[in-house]
Design a protein around this nucleic acid. Structure first.
Length: 428
RNA sequence: GUGGCCGUAGCUCAUCAGGUAGAGCACCGGAUUGUGACUCCGGAGGUGGCGGGUUCGAGACCCGUCGGCCACCCCA
């Protein structure tokens, strides 16, 4: 098979799966609408600098995971690795930020990583971003919105909320110094990766999976002790609001996000049912980002969730939407004259029955083979046209796959009675 | 980028001291005149990921390469 294949890590989403995706998307659509969020659609490609300036130069995403290339005019472009940066750019550019904005988006993101369970190079996120509100009530709103989604999808019991505050930029740099001081003294005990990060991105050592490193961190300075008064108060208020709404969470003082633009509240929804990639949804506050990208100082709060991971989770939890048949009515026609009438009749039925899924048999074949197709289509009713029907000016309706024998059967009716007979059959 | 496991029909897999491949499901057709599901019969479909090597002979052994899965890293 030396045929052309899809790019590694970029998967086709096949018909069986798209049904689940559509279910998730439809659920989200209703959910965000119920909180007053409006959809925004951004380009998939942006200037490379947008991501460097927002996500952070020393993050893994920017250093080694971006799909970047030169446009024909020599400008460096990048396939978006996440959605927030582009959303902020769009909001600034289009002057949306002089008032509160509640936005959401969905679409593909691209990161050059080694594929594994729950991770691919083209993956899909649904993101929510709220601009213009600095107070922690907005933090709570965004988190409550996400919590509601798990309820709607029936997976509340399988995801846990992890919560933390990483404070202001100033608080973080003070803490960073203290942390580095401490860890320098134990440099030898650190795992290799953490040693490297000691210089590049020391905060990330906090969520190292290495047990020895974690043990070392027990005696390390705590981020919470360095929080500024405002971050501390806001964090308390977020928890208060979550408590009041009955959303439970786990405080994780070592939760730091991998993107530089976060401050104050950060959170992750994690599950233990997806193997190593257990984060289903993550986000936080990013009050400096808009200004950093050239806008006025407008605060922001948002999250993104991975649709692939959500779908995997729904499968793992057996919370999939019911499988629906591809057709409601299958139209069988034997012979040229019969087909002529059948095709025309199907068109008329589609005029009358909005949304009814009528599959017209194509490709000829015996009655038998056509009936097999009708059965496999999952249709409840087969409309049958043959020489007899044409001669008599009738059409036969046969009930397929009924639950009880009483409903089984076939009847022939005059053409003019097709609509009402069909309506009656479908009403059962 | 690193590591482990894997790569035989559309799908799930089997076979074998190394002697040029099989099953189930799916698909197509048939079981008397125009009719599905169950059953029975039949059929089509594989240069055994690709390239080299060892051998009289390799899908089976060796090397390389590509791809898949899982994990590390990182993240949704």
């Amino acid at each position: 098979m030396s045929n052309i294949r899809a790019i590694r890590g970029m998967n086709d989403i096949l018909p069986d799966a798209t049904a689940i995706w559509q279910y998730v998307e439809a659920t989200v659509r209703e959910l965000v609408a119920s909180y007053g969020y409006a959809e925004i659609r951004m380009p998939i490609v942006e200037q490379t600098d947008l991501f460097k300036r927002s996500i952070g130069e020393v993050t893994d995403i920017v250093e080694k995971e971006m799909y970047s290339f030169d446009d024909r005019n020599g400008e460096s472009l990048t396939l978006r690795p996440e959605g927030t940066a582009g959303c902020v750019r769009a909001a600034i550019q289009n002057g949306l930020l002089n008032t509160t904005q509640r936005l959401w988006y969905a679409g593909p993101m691209f990161r050059y990583e080694r594929p594994q369970k729950g991770r691919q190079r083209q993956f899909h996120q649904i993101g929510v971003e709220a601009f213009g509100v600095a107070t922690p009530d907005m933090d709570a709103e965004v988190i409550l919105l996400s919590a509601r989604l798990w309820r709607l999808l029936g997976i509340s019991a399988d995801v846990q909320l992890q919560l933390n505050s990483i404070g202001s930029l100033e608080a973080r740099s003070a803490f960073r110094e203290a942390l580095v001081d401490y860890l320098q003294q134990h440099r030898e005990s650190l795992d290799e990766d953490s040693q490297r990060r000691l210089d590049s991105n020391p905060l990330r050592i906090l969520d190292s999976k290495n047990p020895a490193t974690q043990a070392l961190l027990d005696a390390a300075p705590a981020l919470g002790d360095y929080l500024d008064a405002e971050s501390r108060a806001d964090y308390a208020r977020v928890k208060e609001l979550l408590d009041a709404a009955g959303v439970t969470y786990t405080e994780n003082p070592r939760l730091v996000r991998g993107l530089d633009y976060y401050n104050k509240t950060v959170f992750e929804w994690v599950t233990d049912r997806l193997g190593a990639q257990g984060t289903v949804c993550a986000g936080g506050r990013y009050d400096g980002l808009v200004e950093q990208l050239g806008g006025k100082p407008v605060p922001g709060m948002g999250f993104a969730m991975g649709i692939e991971r959500l779908v995997l989770l729904l499968e793992a939890c057996e919370q999939l939407p019911p499988v629906v048949a591809a057709a409601d009515v299958y139209v069988v026609a034997y012979g040229d004259a019969a087909q002529r009438e059948a095709v025309a009749a199907s068109e008329q039925l589609r005029d009358v029955f909005a949304g009814l899924r009528i599959v017209q048999h194509t490709g000829g074949g015996s009655f038998k083979s056509q009936m097999k197709k009708a059965d496999k289509s999952g249709a409840r009713v087969a409309l049958i046209w043959g020489e007899d029907e044409v001669a008599a000016g009738t059409v036969s309706l046969k009930t397929l796959r009924s639950r009880n024998d009483a409903q089984q059967g076939q009847q022939s009716v005059a053409r003019e009675q097709l609509e009402e007979t069909l309506r009656a059959l479908l009403a059962d």
